[in-house]
Simulated assay, not measured.
Amino acid sequence: MRLLSAVLVALSLFLTGVRGNHTSRTCIFQTLSDSDKDFCRGDLEVIYPDVGDVSCSYVPKCHGYRRRLSREWGSPHIRYSWAEKNKKYVLVMVDPDAPNRANPRHRYWRHWVVTDILGTDLRNGKVKGHVLSGYVRPSPPPHSGYHRYQFRLYEQPAHKHIALSPEEDASLGSWDLKGFVEDFGLGHPLVKTQFLTKYYED
């Protein structure tokens, strides 16, 4: 009888372990809350390896995705299927929640700015152009909560040369995004999206 009980306990523990491992393999991609989802407009895809398109979603912690996003992965593929082949575009990626969403005194932290992107490349998910600000991985500080990483795509005015000022170039934080857009007549973004993530150990 004792042997049978021991076998049943061992079997129960084994099955619990199997179920636990099965659960850990399940990776749930949550869509954003309504207030954050409202920012997303149009069909702009932000594609990282293994994860795929993270537009308008939370980056999950499972499979080390948040850690890899912050430590390993390079710039994402950006795809906009409706880009016009003969036009050029400007891509801007910023964090409006630096150092945290409750006190964003360093908004808009500049993570990536590329101009002169051809519509044909955007259709294929490639960002080729003139890099004004090199890609900086999303790396929210510990215990700072979720950060929004926003992508805005603008149509570039014909024959317009776009550049950062020396002052802008000297610092990534507290970037005057509105002033940049107005200075070069970019108008409203054609499409925009964002994803949310936080420090990978939180």
Rank of each mutant, 00 (worst) to 15 (best):
Q150K: 11
G119C: 01
P99R: 07
H159S: 14
K87W: 05
R148H: 15
R148N: 15
V131K: 03
Y146F: 15
T120N: 09
R110M: 09
A158F: 02
V131R: 05
G125C: 11
V94I: 13
A158T: 09
L91W: 13
A102R: 13
D116C: 05
G129T: 08
E155F: 00
K87P: 07
S133A: 11
F151Q: 02
V92D: 06
P157M: 00
H147E: 06
T115F: 07
G145H: 13
Y154M: 08
G134V: 05
A158S: 11
R101T: 11
G129M: 04
L118N: 15
D95V: 00
V94Q: 03
L132Y: 09
K87C: 05
N100R: 12
V90R: 02
D116F: 02
Y108N: 14
Y154P: 05
P104T: 08
D116G: 05
K126N: 06
Q156P: 11
R152G: 03
P99V: 01
H143T: 05
H106D: 08
L91G: 09
H159K: 14
R148S: 15
D97R: 07
D116V: 06
H143S: 11
A158W: 03
L132A: 06
R137D: 06
T120A: 08
T120F: 09
Y154V: 07
L132C: 11
D121H: 11
H111V: 00
D121E: 12
A102D: 15
R152M: 15
V114Q: 06
P96K: 05
H143A: 08
V94L: 01
V131L: 02
W112V: 04
T115A: 13
L91A: 12
Q156E: 15
S139D: 10
N100H: 12
P104M: 06
L153W: 14
Y146M: 12
V127P: 09
P142R: 13
P157L: 00
Y135E: 04
G125Q: 11
V136Q: 12
G145D: 04
P138I: 05
S133N: 12
H106M: 03
V90I: 10
K128F: 12
P141R: 14
V94N: 08
P157G: 02
Y108R: 04
W112H: 13
A102C: 04
D116H: 10
Q150R: 14
V114H: 02
P140I: 02
R101L: 10
V114A: 02
P96I: 02
R152D: 11
P142W: 07
G129D: 11
V114T: 13
P96C: 02
I117F: 05
P96N: 07
N124E: 15
N124I: 01
Y135F: 15
G145P: 10
S133P: 00
H143E: 10
M93S: 09
F151E: 01
S144F: 04
Q150N: 06
R105M: 07
T120K: 13
P96V: 07
Q150P: 08
A102Y: 12
H147Y: 11
V114P: 07
Y146V: 00
G125P: 14
L118D: 15
P141Q: 13
